[in-house]
Design a protein around this nucleic acid. Sequence first.
RNA 1: GCCGGGAUGGCGGAAUCGGUAGACGCAGCGGAUUCAAAAUCCGCCGCCGCAAGGCGUGGGGGUUCGAGUCCCCCUCCCGGCACCA
Length: 902
Amino acid sequence: MDAHYRPEIIEPEAQQHWEEKQAYRASEDSSKPKYYCLSMFPYPSGKLHMGHVRNYTIGDVLARYHRMKGYNVLQPMGWDAFGLPAENAALAHNVPPAGWTYANIDYMRGQLKRLGFAIDWQREVATCKPDYYRWEQWLFTRLFEKGLIYKKMATVNWDPVDHTVLANEQVIDGRGWRSGALVEKRDIPMYFFRITAYAEELLTELDHLPGWPERVKTMQRNWIGKSFGVEIHFPLLPSPPGRRAGDEGATPPDQGPVLKVFTTRADTLFGVTYVAVAAEHPLATQAAAGNPALAAFIAECKQGSVAEADMATMEKKGMDTGLTVHHPFTNEPVPVYVANYVLMGYGEGAVMAVPAHDERDFAFAQKYGLPIRPVIKPVEGDLTLPLEAAYTEPGILFDSGDFSGRASQDAIEKIALVLKNLGLGERRTTFRLRDWGISRQRYWGCPIPIVHCATCGDVPVPADQLPVVLPEDVKMDIGSPIKKMPSFYECACPKCGGAAQRETDTMDTFVESSWYYARYACPDLTTGMLDARANHWLPVDQYIGGIEHAILHLLYARFFHKLMRDEGLVSTNEPFTHLLTQGMVVADTYYRDLGEGKKQWLNPADIEHTPAGPVLKADGQPVIAGGTEKMSKSKNNGVDPQALIDQYGADTARLFTMFAAPPEQSLEWSDAGVEGANRFLRRLWKAVHEHVQAGVTPPFEKGGAGGISAAQQDFRRQLHQTIQKVTDDIERRKQFNTAIAAIMELMNALAKLEGEDSLASRSPGRPKNDLAPSGGGSGGVSEPGAQRIRSIKQEALEAVVLMLAPIVPHICRVLLKALKPGACLVGSAWPVADAAALVRDEIELMLQVNGKLRGKLLVAADAARDAIEQAALASPEAQKHMEGRPAKKVVVVPGRLVNIVA
RNA sequence: GCCGGGAUGGCGGAAUCGGUAGACGCAGCGGAUUCAAAAUCCGCCGCCGCAAGGCGUGGGGGUUCGAGUCCCCCUCCCGGCACCA
């Protein structure tokens, strides 16, 4: 072996070797248990960023670790290749989206290979290829026929200048990002996946995913948002006399026109002082007909973006429609308002407002001088009137007719029952989750396989006519080229054969990423979407990806798995058994204002920090700091890992990324520390090189402990404790920074062991360090033979190289060969701790007096509680700090500490 | 605004079940080596204090023999909010 560590030589060599041997090709024929390790595939944006390196290194460490533990590992990779950035690049650089995408894929594949990931490249998929999206179209037609896909109107962001639909991301401060025009809401027809049909299962199955982080399950539960409430009908006309609250025996009368609302707080029904409807609600439209001011207000509500974050943060505005509905119990008239915060696509598009008991209604009522009528008081005590803020807790009803005196929960039940008997409402369970609109008015996506026929309506494209191929040789312009391409959209109706038009919308790119994990099992299949191999590999044993996907992608993928299950394509209920959500890699952002809400984002690498603030290196002119955000193409704050790889090699990049922070934590990028990771690898190389210079040595035999010095025994204990810790860190804790730290400590100890050895040869009796067990009757340390030291070093270096192999495979491949000529890293097993080396006869306890650390206590490992207490009380430190007071209590935590309370 | 996280030395982070706060690394400082530098090796390194000791995990309160860890309130930062992926 070379005396110097040269990653630029050994890394390409190792990569070439693995590729030639197809070392990481996964096969279904194996007696080993399968382990499917999957990292979220990248969008081919141009080049890898640090988030990718982090994500794929975590996946690779787990894949390589499980390979060493005897699993048949599948680790595939592919490309989430459809999407908006390709269209933007096409407009900016005048290249077709397809060409841009394929070039990016080629470059990024090269980068992934240069990082040495143990990927089965034979299974690579790109979602923009017809052999992939063909099956997505096929499934679409199946679901369409089953009624799991339907068409309805939906609201989008409309740019009135560019005449295009805008993504939420493209709306900045209410204006289109290219045109700068004020964005409007516009209703267009769209196809929807009926995900709400699976809402209940998506919710309950979360309870059977112990391998998922609790925070992700919580977020999904809240997103699905199952709530138990009451649907209440407010009649538009006064009800006939004789109907009374509590009149349970009454037969439901004929229903006149009613306004339906849903509420989880039916107990506050007597506190309703107005109802609010969405601007798009039929009642609002009706009232606006003869009311120009109201019509103008409704038009104003239709300005701005459809993003919920914008809706929720904007100023709450409303206007009286002049219409009234009637309270279902008291028959009192209740005014109907139009409010900009009520969403049409959500529930009934109308809410009952109870200012006394809802914060938003309270603020609204104050603003518009509407009455505030308290009807709930705390179980203990009273409300202070007049209310200064809404009282939103449950409590006891008052001023609520027959229901006064009841507790909230009880009242809800009772009110629901009475409403039901009156025919004016009933108990209902609703979900916050809405159906998934998948139509996109964009070019670079999977064509929706529907033909519109004047006679037959919407006809799904028959399986034998799939795929509907997206033309790739197009000229990009504002708007989708296929909408202007008769050769694409003119076709014959598959049903009647008459002239018809193809749908020109494409699918949401979340659709492709909802099933790719299954296609990796059989990417070459030309006769169907999936075959038996999918059931061999699924579910994914370990899925790794960014926390930003906690809700949408992961929920859609779970939904798709169930759709595929119900099509008989897979046999499991959930796609991902264990989920690791990687924290974001974040970096500072910088920009210059170009006016009209447009910004030019500048890369942090091009920024220099001066006392006067950040400036652009190129021109020395100031730039604006935009805060710390996740690395993204749109904010241009990605750090290019290529420079890191070029300078230090893949192993250093991998080691540093794993060492910088635990995987689940967000990581603010900084290059500081890369040097240290590289230094460690150089020291490791040197240690192995110096060791093997003296020739081949067999490792110290496990279980054998006879005749080795206390220092050597301590070292071997540390070695085997480290094996235990690293195993636990990788397998259970999935925390690699502490595993690396433990190995670094072990290497530091190994270096000291050598020093001690040479010292011992000069003067017998090893120098004591404070923590080492003293006494034990050994007296003089036995002079260790050079061969014994060498065998212990061999044992340690072999273990270190194997433990580091999942993290830094290239260097470990060379080091293992040097330590064990003929050994092969790919087939090597993970080291196992030697139980005999872990045995300890003395332990150190912390000594506290009144909770403050005052000293340390060395006791036999099997010392009884009494003996420990006596030793603690007798110690000089305890005597000093007890100051003559008697011990009131002695707390002994076995193996940890003694606390004397005096 | 709503939902989910986070905050520990100059910096990244450790402390796994309520039990030694600051492992490991970076930066810094001192020394060895060198003609010199780089590299390497050794040592020091939370704050106050000569020391004994005291203080210290975003802020305020609480539970406990003992709190970075549990509970309540607050501040700031990050992710998501259904058309970025």
